[in-house]
Amino acid sequence: MAVAVAEVWYDPKNPFWIAALFACFVLCLYTAVVWSVAAVVPAVEDGGEAVAVERAEELVRGRRLDGFMVNLLFSVVCLVVVFGFWMTMGDRGRLNLTVYGLFFVNGVSITRIFGGVMYTVYYFRCREYHGEEIDFLVNHLT
């Protein structure tokens, strides 16, 4: 419904829309912190996926702004790379679709790998912030 209303009322000359889109982008990055940490929790802790969101919410408490800044930096870097590639490649006809497709698939794969590492480090920083001992390597190596 909101997308339909936005399509009808959209006016690119109105600065309200630019501010509204920027606010939506920032809000999405802020709320995605818990879900990103919740993707790491089942891989690192015992307890499974059923309690991952609750555990992530507990860990992020007090450090949500740090997670937002990580999300923002990561998004800006991705945007710079995509726009840089777009400006470099230009319009090359049929080859454009193939090159953009390959770049997109490889870019998404690399982004997911880097994002997983980034949120795993953020997860351990949150555990340190809450005073939890990080001894998972000792338990799994013996």
Rank of each mutant, 00 (worst) to 15 (best):
Y100W: 07
V99S: 10
L102H: 02
N139V: 04
T111V: 08
E133Y: 03
Y100T: 14
V138H: 14
Y100E: 14
F136G: 10
I110A: 09
G131D: 05
Y119P: 03
R125W: 06
V108E: 07
V138I: 10
R112L: 13
Y123G: 02
T98W: 12
F103C: 12
D135R: 05
H130Y: 02
T111I: 04
L97R: 03
E133P: 08
G131T: 01
L137F: 15
Y122H: 11
C126T: 02
G101Y: 10
G107F: 05
L97G: 14
G116M: 02
F103H: 09
S109L: 15
Y100D: 13
V138F: 10
G101A: 15
I110K: 00
Y100S: 12
V105G: 09
V108M: 12
S109T: 11
G115F: 00
Y122Q: 07
I134R: 01
V117G: 14
F124T: 12
T111L: 06
Y100Q: 12
F114R: 04
I110S: 01
I110G: 01
S109R: 08
C126D: 05
G107E: 10
T111A: 14
V121A: 13
G115P: 02
F124D: 12
I113F: 14
E133K: 11
F114P: 01
N139E: 15
Y100A: 13
G131V: 00
L137T: 13
R125V: 07
F114C: 12
R112M: 13
C126F: 00
G115W: 01
V138C: 06
V108L: 15
T98V: 13
V117I: 15
F103N: 11
H130I: 00
Y122K: 04
H140C: 02
G131A: 03
F114Y: 09
I113K: 11
I134P: 00
M118Y: 00
L97A: 15
V117L: 14
S109V: 07
V99W: 06
Y122I: 00
G115I: 00
I113N: 08
F136H: 11
L137G: 15
G107C: 12
L102W: 11
T120M: 04
V105H: 04
L102M: 14
G107S: 10
L137Y: 13
G115T: 08
V121G: 06
F136R: 11
Y123K: 03
G131I: 00
C126W: 02
F124V: 07
Y100I: 05
V99G: 08
Y129V: 00
V121W: 07
G116H: 04
G116Y: 01
R125D: 10
G101I: 05
F136L: 13
T98A: 14
R112G: 07
F136D: 15
G131F: 04
T98S: 11
T111W: 08
M118G: 01
